[in-house]
Amino acid sequence: MPPTDTNLVQATQTSLRLIEEIQRRDGATMAELADEFDLARSTIFSHLNTLKQNGYVTKRGEIYHLDFKFLFLGEYTKRRNEAYELAEQYVKEMAGKCDEYVDFCVEQNGRILTVHLAINGIQNPQFTVAEYFHMTNTAQGKAILAHLPRERVEEIIDQWGMPRRTENSITSERRLFDELETIREGGYAVSYQECIEGMRAVAVPILEPDGSLFGTFGISGPKYKMTDEMIETELVELLQDGKSEFEAESKELYTAV
């Protein structure tokens, strides 16, 4: 959903929307992009040519793809903060202990973004790093929402809605806010097949040294393995221990600066 700020530069906004559409389609022709956005092909060409000249897209035959410059920028973003690198270490360590998918996620513009992902300490291609998810139907998202002011949560709902990904997805604001209160009291969030059918997840919030929200550590797995007992004992304990150790170590990073 595009932002509604009246101060946005429309040309830049168009370029960004084209980039996102190319990514969503895993490559797109000029005709497809022109139809999607109801723009003249000359306008689309000007944007794509500018992006191509600057290394952001490449063309193979008639299809435009995102270029490797995004990889460079993404790696820079992950490495610019030592705490992000530290989070990667913890993700791999926890994945080696639980034989499930472990991730580190952050909130970006009202959605959850997967920054690091591993299973048994090894990066796994079955799930995608840099993948976005809605916050209301993921354990990671709800863990973050529980630590945001109610006004910010309402803004996120207004922006992205409460999509029903499965029959278990939360689509009622009242039910969501009741659950966020439970999460605040318990210190962790759970998703019972609310985002992906057959998958459960549990997540804990990670805080900055100043008490602000940094991100989440989460564990996901199939429902037949991740029983209530396993979540409430083994996995919550693993996440809480990782959270405590990470927050203590990241505090030392800030102190050393």
Rank of each mutant, 00 (worst) to 15 (best):
N168L: 12
M162Y: 10
R79Q: 05
E155F: 05
T216A: 13
P209E: 02
Y224D: 08
E237H: 13
S15A: 12
T6A: 13
T4G: 11
S42Q: 06
R175T: 03
R200A: 00
E252Q: 15
A87R: 05
R111M: 14
A189R: 01
S46L: 13
Y224H: 11
S15W: 10
L39E: 08
L48H: 07
E237D: 04
I156P: 01
Q10K: 14
R174E: 05
M135F: 06
L39N: 09
S220A: 15
P222R: 12
E194D: 00
A256D: 09
L253P: 01
F214K: 12
E229K: 08
E179Y: 14
T136S: 01
F246M: 08
R79V: 01
A201E: 07
F246Q: 00
Q126Y: 11
L180I: 04
L117T: 03
M135E: 04
E179F: 08
I156L: 06
T233Y: 04
A256N: 14
A95P: 02
Q89L: 09
E93D: 13
R17D: 12
F45M: 05
E181C: 04
N7I: 14
K97Y: 00
L176I: 07
L253D: 10
V9S: 11
V115F: 03
T77K: 11
F177R: 01
M1A: 07
C105Y: 06
V91I: 09
S220C: 14
E93V: 14
F246I: 06
G198W: 02
K243P: 04
G221S: 09
A143P: 06
S212Y: 09
V106I: 15
K69E: 08
S212E: 04
A83F: 11
D5F: 08
N109K: 12
S15R: 12
Q126L: 15
N137G: 06
I170C: 10
V204L: 06
Q193T: 04
Q140G: 15
T58V: 12
P222A: 10
K59P: 10
P209I: 06
T43R: 05
E237W: 04
M226H: 03
G211V: 06
N137I: 00
S15D: 11
T4S: 15
L66C: 05
D5P: 02
T50H: 14
E151R: 02
R174F: 07
S244H: 14
E167K: 15
R174C: 12
L253Q: 04
Q108W: 08
A256H: 10
S244T: 09
A146W: 04
N168V: 09
E173L: 07
S46M: 07
S244P: 08
L148C: 02
E237F: 03
F214T: 02
R25V: 05
D241L: 09
I231V: 06
E75V: 02
D35T: 05
Y56I: 13
N124F: 08
T50A: 10
G198S: 12
E247H: 07
R24P: 03
S244E: 10
L71M: 13
A31V: 15
V9N: 15
F217A: 01
T4F: 12
I63F: 13
A139E: 04
E100Y: 00
E151K: 01
L66P: 11
Y192R: 11
K69S: 10
K142A: 01
P125V: 08
I231L: 02
P222L: 10
P125Q: 03
E93L: 13
